[in-house]
Write a protein that binds this DNA or RNA. Structure first.
Lengths: 146, 146
DNA sequence: CGAGTTGGTTTCGAATCGAAACCGACCTAC
DNA sequence: GTAGGTCGGTTTCGATTCGAAACCAACTCG
């Protein structure tokens, strides 16, 4: 990839960290509690070398941390940092889109509020107008997004 | 990629459509109004063969449509379908994360409400409780997500 | 006619992926 | 103490994908 934009825009920088076919899948598993190397291999069907490389990149970018879960023998697991946990919105947005538009009507990952069970909405809000904002009313401060 | 999960989970199916280093960047440009082949090449610095392949995939998956913008000579541009427009939440989530955590403090893409200019928040809401829901209170109907 | 523009396709070397084999540190059982 | 197993990788190597550049077809303009 050259550079036309890739590392000099907000989304380009995001994709430099999580923009490949595996990383978001790995993070979804970590969110769900699958945190060890061999569990991730098993759960995702990813090649071990790729998983090792992706985890190293995520640690390097401070999305995950490697913490010991056992001393004898010394073993580690991968946990989300606050930066990593903050990817939940993106992850949820991707999951919801897949359920809405690419579902084969079998196993949607319905996301619900944990104490009432209602299906959640991901909503763009204007804190000062206190209203939900449609995508067509979003602008970028330096030019229009939509 | 084998299949351990890739095409049988919501997010796996999403990533099968938009999960590579270029597709979200292409879509961001289309959202911004960059819709023609040569404009996209110029704006992104993407190789022409890759752009052609990605656009074909997005059309095939009904994320974009090819519409004529000129009859003589016949020329086309790519527009978002409703399905494509619905990726705005994911796109916005990725942009915001990049601004928050990967910014080099130069050119954040601040997203604002078009008629008051306030910076927008992407919020997970429970429509029945009418409250904002933290990522830690999200569950999947078939097991916990976080 | 010849030159320019648009929207691609073809070609080919370089980088990345994926499957499998290998490895080192550390158990546990015998 | 040594054989076998587990965990978390690393190495190897053929297959796939990427990226840069050249090429091309359809069309317009002068």
């Amino acid at each position: 990839m050259s550079q036309g934009d890739t590392d000099q825009s907000s989304i380009g920088r995001t994709l430099a960290v999580v923009g490949d076919r595996w990383t978001m899948l790995i993070l979804r598993d970590v969110f769900r509690g699958v945190r060890r190397f061999s569990e991730l291999v098993e759960s995702l069907g990813i090649a071990r070398n790729l998983l090792a490389e992706r985890l190293a990149r995520l640690v390097e970018h401070d999305v995950l941390v490697k913490v010991p879960y056992c001393d004898r023998p010394l073993r580690h697991e991968y946990r989300l940092t606050p930066k990593g946990a903050d990817l939940s919105r993106a992850l949820i947005a991707l999951i919801r889109w897949g359920d809405e538009w690419e579902s084969d009507d079998t196993d949607p990952t319905v996301l619900v509020h944990d104490h009432c069970g209602t299906e959640l909405e991901l909503e763009l809000r204007c804190p000062s107008c206190d209203v939900s904002v449609a995508p067509t009313h979003v602008r970028s401060r330096s030019g229009s997004l939509l």
